[in-house]
Amino acid sequence: MLAVPGALPTDGSRYALEIKWDGIRAIVYKDYQDPQVRITGRQAADYTSRYPEVAGLAVDLAGHRVVLDGELVAFDRTGRPAFQRLQRRMQVTDPGRLAEFVPVTYLPFDLLHLDGYDLFDVPYLDRRDLLERLGIDVPPRFPGDATELLTITREKGLEGVIAKRLDSPYRPGRRSEWWIKVKNLDMRDVVIGGWRPGRGR
């Protein structure tokens, strides 16, 4: 499920806010007795061998059948997401020692399946509650009226926030107005010194 661009909702009590991470989306699958997790990208590409750091989730989720939605993120030395660092890993199928120098973290923010039950029609708030009870590291969520969060993310050099309706279902692969991405824009005053017509489409 994908967010639409927009502004912070005025009826914040109906939403939760999450930080928008500058990474790549990934779905993680864990079956009951399987000692490993499987990772796929948005186009169903298999990412499992590319990100061995995520393998530890198999231990944390032992005894469960789980499907998670989340973001693969590489942090810089200041603790901020750095997409340029992540790019060094994106096409490497066997990272080896590169994983030590450019580690990647999986940040799960939604739970799509749990122990035999699909959760697509379960409201976001209930899915998040179930996710947080799994005992794995989950990035925080904030009240929808915490509008100062957008300012804080801007000051910290983060990409922005996602506003998610508390009652929103999950619709795989669809861009939905249930989720709104609010990005921090880099605004600058410039003087246009010339213009050349383009030839592209």
Score class of each variant (00 low, 15 high):
residue 2 L to C: 02
residue 2 L to P: 05
residue 2 L to W: 03
residue 3 A to W: 07
residue 5 P to M: 00
residue 8 L to E: 10
residue 11 D to W: 05
residue 14 R to E: 09
residue 15 Y to K: 04
residue 16 A to K: 06
residue 19 I to F: 03
residue 20 K to F: 10
residue 22 D to V: 15
residue 23 G to N: 13
residue 29 Y to N: 14
residue 29 Y to G: 13
residue 35 P to R: 05
residue 35 P to M: 01
residue 44 A to P: 00
residue 45 A to L: 07
residue 50 R to V: 07
residue 54 V to D: 01
residue 54 V to A: 05
residue 58 A to F: 00
residue 58 A to V: 02
residue 60 D to H: 04
residue 72 L to H: 08
residue 74 A to L: 05
residue 77 R to T: 13
residue 78 T to G: 03
residue 79 G to L: 03
residue 83 F to H: 10
residue 87 Q to T: 13
residue 88 R to K: 14
residue 89 R to W: 06
residue 90 M to D: 01
residue 97 R to F: 01
residue 99 A to C: 00
residue 103 P to W: 09
residue 107 L to H: 13
residue 115 D to V: 12
residue 117 Y to N: 05
residue 120 F to I: 00
residue 120 F to H: 10
residue 120 F to Y: 13
residue 123 P to R: 09
residue 125 L to P: 00
residue 126 D to V: 15
residue 127 R to E: 08
residue 131 L to Y: 07
residue 134 L to I: 10
residue 138 V to A: 03
residue 139 P to N: 09
residue 143 P to Q: 07
residue 146 A to F: 12
residue 146 A to S: 14
residue 146 A to I: 06
residue 155 E to F: 00
residue 160 G to F: 12
residue 162 I to T: 12
residue 165 R to Y: 02
residue 169 P to H: 11
residue 171 R to Q: 14
residue 179 W to F: 01
residue 181 K to C: 04
residue 186 D to V: 15
residue 188 R to T: 12
residue 189 D to P: 01
residue 195 W to C: 01
residue 196 R to D: 03
residue 198 G to N: 12
